[in-house]
């Protein structure tokens, strides 16, 4: 599914990723932990093709394609989704209209028919119910006046509607109370399937109580410095990241 090999990348003119490698197979859930400023968001932004991250070397293969050569909207259309650490507000654009525009743009790129508004409405209503979220989310402008938690839930809801192949969640659990955390985790778990993979960036082990990862990695100073199974997350929770330096 995804093979990152020895990637270097800058944010601004600072070198952030320094020879990072990671392989994600279909159906796997990988958790990425690590200290602030380590480059976790930079990795997510690099994969999504956000222009403020400039690749400097190495390669990223995604489903047989050279991911770094594609435009961000093309990457989205072939199934790369990033739940942003800081979701953006778009005043005056209602969430549902935004999502239908996004979905139909992706379908068009893939050569599929557009979904009409009636079909879309039915689908979205069902999703919002399945994901235990509130209807009013649909009518409000994208993220405008949303609380921190609502913004994160909206990211997960968008993921549910767009049904990506590779979903990257960047600190989607930060700032959530336990109920919201469960809703977010449920959203992810409902989508888990044999051909869909997740990269979950988090600071806290507690999310991993609800979303059980196949692998846990520690990203520090622009590289994966340690990988393990879910027990690694527990160790990190107890001991912090300091011991990794030794």
């Amino acid at each position: 599914m995804l093979k990152i090999e020895n990637v270097f990348a800058n944010a601004g003119d600072k070198e952030i990723l320094k020879g990072l490698s990671l392989e994600v197979k279909p159906g796997e859930v990988h958790a990425i932990m690590g200290p602030n400023g380590a480059g976790k968001s930079t990795l997510g932004n690099l994969l999504a093709g956000m222009p403020y991250v400039q690749p400097q070397g190495g390669s990223v293969q995604y489903m047989g394609k050279d991911l770094l050569s594609l435009e961000p909207e093309e990457r989205a259309a072939i199934g790369v989704f990033l739940a942003f650490q800081y979701p953006v507000e778009i005043p005056g654009v209602n969430n549902m209209y935004f999502l239908r525009t996004a979905l139909n743009a992706q379908r068009k790129y893939r050569g599929e028919d557009a979904m009409d508004s009636a079909q879309f409405l039915r689908m979205v209503k069902q999703k919002i119910k399945d994901m235990n979220m509130r209807d009013d989310l649909l009518k409000r402008p994208v993220n405008v006046g949303f609380s921190g938690g609502e913004k994160k839930r909206n990211e997960v809801f968008q993921m549910g509607v767009l049904e990506p192949k590779l979903a990257i969640l960047d600190e989607t659990d930060s700032g959530l109370d336990i109920d919201a955390l469960k809703i977010v985790a449920d959203g992810v778990n409902q989508l888990r399937s044999a051909d869909r993979s997740f990269i979950i960036i988090t600071h806290y082990q507690r999310l991993l109580d609800y979303i059980e990862p196949d692998f846990v990695h520690v990203l520090a100073d622009g590289k994966i410095v340690k990988s393990g199974d879910k027990n690694l997350a527990l160790e990190l929770e107890e001991q912090g990241y300091g011991w990794l330096n030794n």
Binding site: P51, P72, E73, F81, I90, T101, A102, A105, Q158
Partner: peptide, 19 residues
């Protein structure tokens, strides 16, 4: 805002018109 739209698969032209 533009990047957010692009990441969801919306082309730049459509993103501007949406915004």
């Amino acid at each position: 805002q533009l990047n957010y739209c692009l990441q969801r698969g919306i082309t730049e032209e459509d993103a501007i018109s949406l915004i």
